[in-house]
Nucleic acid binder design. Sequence first.
DNA 1: ACAATAACCGATAAAAGATTCGGTATCCAT
DNA 2: ATGGATACCGAATCTTTTATCGGTTATTGT
Lengths: 120, 120
Amino acid sequence: MYTKKIEEDLDCGLRIGFKIFGGKWKMCILDAINNGFTRPAEIYRSMPDATLRVIEMQLAELLSFGVVDKYSEDVYPKKTEYRLTNLGKSILPILSQIDKWGTEHSAFVKEKLQELDEVQ
Amino acid sequence: MYTKKIEEDLDCGLRIGFKIFGGKWKMCILDAINNGFTRPAEIYRSMPDATLRVIEMQLAELLSFGVVDKYSEDVYPKKTEYRLTNLGKSILPILSQIDKWGTEHSAFVKEKLQELDEVQ
DNA sequence: ACAATAACCGATAAAAGATTCGGTATCCAT
DNA sequence: ATGGATACCGAATCTTTTATCGGTTATTGT
């Protein structure tokens, strides 16, 4: 019998950050947009590990949080562009810092993960 | 009928970063340790929103990733300290940057989330 | 007319993550 | 010897997030 449901604490800057860009794909999507892949299909092709559906859902969330804006034009091919808002742009330094960290420690992390797999 | 299982791509620095410190509590725990709350019970008291069990599990993961080290002393009260490794310390700048971002945008984020709740 | 591309959405399944509960063991103070 | 504090762990279960599938609508090129 469960009684407690822990509610999210938004008095912590860390938690707020993760709330906004902490999903599995959000940072990657922001990175893609920043690199010029502004349309859903483009983003999808730039990161085919995610499904198009996921990208759409994440874009909708980022839109609702005010991280991206949406611009639609009625031309062919049906053109919808997502662009970073100022809020979205303010995340970029964090993004590049995490990316840099991950790249720098890539070898070590992979080694550790392999160790864990082997024990398994 | 499901066929595909997307495997994780660890060729992206962002994904590597999130793999290591992307959980709901990991960054908070690193922050707590950095602030001198080095023992599980201390960490728990410093962030009672999480349960002790969660903290234990997250610590075990951080330990296996080489982000923290564990030191036990057989004194009373049974003393176990978790300390940041060099890898763990290298995460701190990212941590403080996210915290700073979240604090700065706290008002805006809360406003947005409230809007979403109201529509709900 | 028909295939191809783009954007998007609903329902549902699966996987991941977090939480609760109930344990063990040790040590100290009363 | 009893109760409280510490550090753990296993298992069940809940919650959240992500993934898959199967659609709709619209437009272009052939």
